[in-house]
Write a protein that binds this DNA or RNA. Structure first.
Lengths: 195, 195
DNA sequence: CGTCTAACTGAACAATCGTTCAATTGCAAA
DNA sequence: TTTGCAATTGAACGATTGTTCAGTTAGACG
């Protein structure tokens, strides 16, 4: 019979994820030990194995849930309209979603090489779905004559790179609000693909 | 009395650097052991300490020499002319320099958090000098009225991010030549900051 | 040809790694 | 209040870590 709500399990589980995310983002997966994560949670190392079968699965679950959240949020966002409006929607959605999730973005980008081949393939597939969403918008705009690019696939990767790079230097305590950043980046994106 | 040229030292030294660079780029600094590097070189682990005082210094030297090469190449490039020509020069220089150095770029970006605070500060300062070179071009173009941006500093970071992101997905065995990539990216950069 | 020493080996060091598991704890249900 | 079991402890495991160092080797020099 399972424990009721409020039992330690329901509290410790999320704590493990949060501690692992923070520590891995800061020091890197290979540099963080299970004992460090356990200490941050306030338990012994052995207790972590009630919440993950092993260290690799812990990393994978962090990345998988981040990508799942991203794709779910994108589906919910329901960006529609003409290609220009959809491109603006994608740009603002990307920034709005990623800026408050600095640790997740960091881990999802930096720790890909520490995933097992099977786990890597799953994350990569999800990332690809997200990239394809942008590429589809660009192709629609190209077909409609409102966008003009030398190479659509390369432009997709270039814009994704520009948007993702933002998470690597933006600081929430800096001089710029999220809304300001959104406007600046949208200006760059819009002009870059303008017909 | 030092050994003459052709001694093992002159051969093993570069081999250590090359092996460390390749392995760290592939698996990450913390995930690579001194014994793995030694095995790749063809020596025992203890022999590495003829070429580096410790593992941390080995990483720092890889990053320092990469950044030194970059800044030296930029100084030599001697990009001049009107702001538009200089921006094109910077864009093409960046791609031309970075594309054949995928491992160095990877290590220089992914392993910053594994540097000691003093070493980090040095690398960061060099990176800043490079970013400033782009920012100066953008400001000159802005003053001349040939560029127009919502925020010059943010645009600098956005363009650097876009250009650097290229190294993360570009494969030398892919469908696109370096010259083609240069042209595509220059097209995006030029339009993004156009007045 | 014999000498010297840079280069390297191979073993050892204490520390730390991920993971397992019998024993203990403490709360919820009966 | 007693019972049952989820949650956790704490110790242990074999493996591996970065680093040191006395001893061996081999190639260039006098």
């Amino acid at each position: 019979m399972a424990r009721k709500q409020g039992s330690h399990s329901d509290i410790t589980g999320p704590k493990v994820q949060a501690a692992a995310l923070r520590l891995i983002a800061q020091h890197g997966f290979a540099a963080v030990s299970m004992r460090q994560i356990a200490a941050e949670v306030g338990v012994q190392a052995g207790a972590l194995y009630n919440y993950t079968p092993d260290k690799q699965s812990l990393l994978f679950e962090l990345m998988r849930s981040h990508m799942t959240d991203l794709l779910a949020a994108w589906d919910t966002a329901d960006i529609s309209g003409d290609p220009l409006a959809r491109l603006e929607g994608f740009t603002r959605f990307h920034i709005h979603f990623h800026l408050p999730r600095a640790d997740q973005v960091f881990v999802a980008y930096m720790e890909l090489r520490n995933l097992s081949p099977e786990n890597f393939a799953q994350i990569e597939a999800m990332r690809h779905r997200y990239e394809d969403a942008l590429e589809e918008i660009l192709r629609a705009g190209e077909a409609a004559g409102v966008f003009k690019m030398a190479d659509t696939r390369v432009t997709t990767m270039a814009l994704i790179g520009m948007l993702t790079g933002l998470s690597h230097w933006y600081r929430t305590d800096g001089r710029l609000e999220t809304a300001t950043i959104e406007a600046i980046y949208w200006d760059l994106v819009r002009k870059a693909v303008a017909a």
